[in-house]
Design a protein around this nucleic acid. Structure first.
Lengths: 221, 221
DNA sequence: CGAAACTTTGATCTCTGTCAAGATTAGTGG
DNA sequence: CCACTAATCTTGACAGAGATCAAAGTTTCG
């Protein structure tokens, strides 16, 4: 049981050693092949997962196939809602994924009686809420170029903490995923990448980009 | 102290009588005139509020004035993040507002040590998250007409539980607020209302609308 | 009653979506 | 290891939904 993952999953300073050990006994290791669905919106939430390796897209769909990617989960993220009966979104593996699986009822029983775990879940839910609200602001008020540049900057800061420093920013997700995240068509995403490339702002490489300039977080139109 | 408000604020079945009484002693009554700002994004969160009367718009702004309305809060809603140092969005009174004010540190001290209060806050945060994600899906994937009709249906179901049944659905917020909520321009909102009116789907009355037909929650394009 | 604030309507423009065709890349079986 | 196929990505042409600019109409409120 990798102690460090559990620390990143369950926060530093929230749980004590006894609680961490208790949680460890509830977890089983699971793997998902590239593209596999981990759970689907509306399904009974029998389990929650602690992501330990790989990337997961969380999304909602409409009956006609339109899709909204809500977030890209990275190692250390908790997938699923421990205190809810049903999943409110779907989750797919992007590339190979490894995770710790918890029975939701066991996890919930544990959480409901632990002040520290409830505080931690609160913290996580609040963070997710703020991320969703930031995204809402972005997709409703920003141009295609702003959305893409903001996405790249934010992705870099999330990714930086997970990978060895490199000039190349990896983008393991598809253009379609980025498009569905930013509320754009994949063609517009591709064209915006091309525009930034032509301007010398980024360099496009297989499965990633190199950010060139003084990429401060953009906010103006 | 209106016991019923506290029940709607703090959920039925979460807190016991002792806890409710304790909370009551922390609260003071405050009023806000129409249009007044209750708190602003980035401000130190000295207080949280339990909304008892009126309507509040929660929003984020960009430096250039672009604005995203995140939600319209109604009586019974909690305003502000009890466990966060700073406000992550701004809140304005729409019309006259009455609320109970809690010192955030006092509220937080109470919450941090109460399993039931933490569960309740979790429930609230999760609900807010799901509402934000639904909105994200709506504004990214739906046409102007879908957004407006979905807004009206959702607003009716929230409003229905608060007011005496009436054929008229009150819309106390401005067109601009609806536009900033749905990621549209106010002209487009106005034109969409007009279109629905011409079609006989709604009737526009001062400060509200009458929904005409079998308004099932729309989802298709 | 009159001014300010808000809403509606009109005309025009533009950004981005849609449709379509190539170009790359990845995956697979011989 | 390479050829072949499928998937993904890029680029082009075009059109349309909605934004913007502008003005008139309506409501609100001192």
């Amino acid at each position: 049981m990798p102690r460090t993952l559990f620390l990143s999953l369950f926060g530093r300073g929230y749980l004590d050693a006894v609680e961490l050990r208790g949680l460890g006994q509830l977890a089983t290791k699971v793997d998902f092949r590239a593209g596999k669905t981990i759970f689907s919106e509306g399904d009974p939430a029998n389990a929650v997962f602690g992501l330990s390796k790989g990337l997961v897209r969380l999304y909602k769909s409409l009956p006609d196939g339109r899709r909204q990617v809500l977030a890209f989960a990275v190692p250390g993220d908790l997938l699923g809602t421990p205190l809810r009966e049903r999943h409110s979104c779907s989750a797919d593996a992007i590339g190979e994924v490894a995770a710790w699986r918890f029975s939701r009822t066991e996890f919930s029983n544990f959480a409901q009686t632990s002040l520290s775990m409830l505080r931690l879940l609160n913290h996580a839910a609040t963070r997710d809420l703020e991320m969703a609200q930031e995204l809402l602001l972005l997709v409703c008020q920003a141009s295609a170029e702003e959305r893409v540049t903001t996405f790249l900057v934010n992705w870099r800061s999330r990714f930086a903490s997970l990978s060895t420093p490199s000039p190349v920013l990896a983008l393991p997700m598809r253009r379609q995923d980025i498009a569905d995240f930013l509320g754009l068509s994949l063609e517009t995403v591709s064209r915006t990448f091309a525009k930034l490339h032509d301007r010398g702002t980024i360099r496009i490489v297989p499965k990633g980009v190199v950010l060139r300039e003084n990429w401060r977080t953009p906010r103006a139109k």
